[in-house]
Design a protein around this nucleic acid. Structure first.
Length: 427
RNA sequence: GGAGAGAUGGCCGAGAGGCUGAAGGCGCUCCCCUGCUAAGGGAGUAUGGGGUUUAUAGCUCCAUCGAGGGUUCGAAUCCCUCUCUCUCCGCCA
């Protein structure tokens, strides 16, 4: 959520900034609601003040044994008027907050302005796209040849967009998770967490998946229970929510958390996209980096965090590029995002494998995640960041496709071999 | 799943319809005193929102005692619903 005071004090300026990312703010509607809100709230508070004063007077008169009947009569009429106005105020405020919750974050000034994906800006490349003197296969063909990757059986168990892995390939997948976690915890200063994979609506609101993106989620209902729970679409949700409604002492910042979790996405509205292979699945594993930092440090932290994700690709020897998303392609909650795209020989293109974002105070405001600023002594919102470090399934795809040989064997990068019991290739 | 107990400020803990945004203690901050240390004395110390203001400070109002509703002129206190925590029993990886 953006700072509500922007709506009150700098509405037009805010609308202009939002226009950069292609979002139209209904300025007229907000101005009208705001005027109503102000008037109603002022009146409600005036009446409450009056009531409080009168009630106090009744108490005092009673204590002195005076007759309170006339006093009570005077106050009686207040109640109805107050109740009516409070009802009005409530409905105005819920309208306003619905608008507010639907407003995306303001892009940072350093974000390139653009309408969509095509206008993203490549920042740097690492490595060169793998050349092969034979026709490289994609991971689907490689996996099928090895007999270790199966989409058809998974569809029978569940539905489309699921898969099974078996044998050494499954082990490689598992090893990747440990590999990533070890690097982030040992070398990048992250604390490892184990967290719930099922969360409530408040958590999803906190990180911005709700109310706007409910159709992306798998919702659970348990027996008679009325409460709605959801499978997490990313570890970002439980991990960032760890600090919900907390006030962090300044000395504890920055906080760096890493967690491996499965992620569940309904992929509504992506029917035609990436239907082949394990690029876009309903269920996948991800190692997620989350940071909570002082506001003035968040852009340095974004560079660092992006570097942490890049380190994994570099260790594995996977060629990739870093792309700065333009304003039109920015996620709802993000102020600035770098995507890491890995080279996939099977598709002859770069594909997203990590997305690293600075949310500034957008999530923190919803979460009420704060720190105590020693300069002011007051609790202030932290800035939150996260990034995949990395998407495990896509990393596996990248390894399969980049390190295949002409016989269809997969060679395991040296850095990874200790994590798969010294195995050097899968054939 | 059954039975019971509980949830109050950074922490502990009182309060059982009105003078309680909340006693007392601990912690923390500042000041005084004490040649060091220990001890002692004094003051301060929740959060969110509105109005005023260019904005802050200030002033002022409102809300908040797990959450939501209700009763009442008035609720931390009474009633209802929910959530969470603890203890015992059962079950279980």
């Amino acid at each position: 959520m953006i700072d509500p005071s922007l709506i009150r004090n700098r509405l037009h300026e805010t609308a202009e900034i939002l226009a950069r990312r292609g979002f139209t703010l209904d300025v007229a509607a907000i101005e009208k609601l705001e005027a109503q809100r102000k008037e109603t709230q002022t009146e409600v508070e005036r009446l409450q003040h009056e009531r409080n004063r009168s009630s106090k007077a009744i108490g005092q008169a009673k204590a002195q044994g005076q007759d309170v009947a006339p006093l009570m009569e005077a106050v009686g009429a207040l109640g109805d008027r107050l109740k009516e106005l409070q009802g009005q105020l409530e409905s105005i405020q819920s309208e306003l907050s619905a608008i507010l919750l639907g407003i995306p974050n303001l892009p940072n000034d350093s974000v390139p302005v653009g309408a969509g994906e095509e206008e993203n800006v490549e920042v740097r490349r690492w490595g060169t796209p793998t050349e092969m003197d034979f026709g490289p296969k994609d991971h689907v063909a490689l996996g099928a040849n090895l007999g270790m990757l199966d989409f058809e059986r998974a569809a029978r168990l569940s539905q489309s967009r699921f898969m099974t892995m078996s044998g050494p390939l499954a082990r490689l997948h598992r090893g990747l998770i440990s590999f990533m976690l070890d690097i982030h915890t040992r070398e990048h200063g992250y604390t490892e967490w184990y967290v719930p994979y099922i969360v409530n609506a408040d958590s999803l609101r906190g990180t911005g998946q709700l109310p706007k993106f409910e159709e992306e989620l798998f919702a659970l209902r348990c027996g008679e229970d009325e409460r709605q729970l959801y499978l997490i679409p990313t570890a970002e949700v439980p991990v960032t929510n760890l600090m919900r409604e907390e006030i962090i002492e300044a000395g504890m910042l920055p906080r760096r958390f890493v967690a491996h979790t499965p992620c569940f996405r309904s992929e509504a509205g992506s029917y035609g996209k990436d239907t082949r292979g394990m690029i876009r699945q309903h269920q996948f594993e991800k190692v997620e980096l989350v940071q909570l930092v002082r506001p003035e440090e968040s852009y340095d932290a974004l560079e660092a965090l992006t570097g942490h994700a890049e380190a994994i690709l570099q260790r594995l020897g996977l060629p990739y590029r870093v792309v700065a998303l333009c304003t039109g392609d920015l996620g709802f909650s993000s102020a600035k995002t770098y995507d890491l795209e890995v080279w996939l020989p099977g598709q002859q293109c770069y594909r997203e494998i990590s997305s690293c974002s600075n949310f500034e105070s957008f999530q923190a405001r919803r979460l009420q995640a704060r720190w105590r600023n020693p300069e002011t002594g007051k609790p202030e919102l932290v800035h939150t960041l996260n990034g995949s470090g990395l998407a495990v399934g896509r990393t596996l795809v990248a390894i399969m496709e980049n390190f295949q040989d002409r016989h269809g064997a997969i060679h395991i990068p040296e850095a990874l071999q200790p994590y798969v019991g010294g195995m050097t290739k899968i054939a």
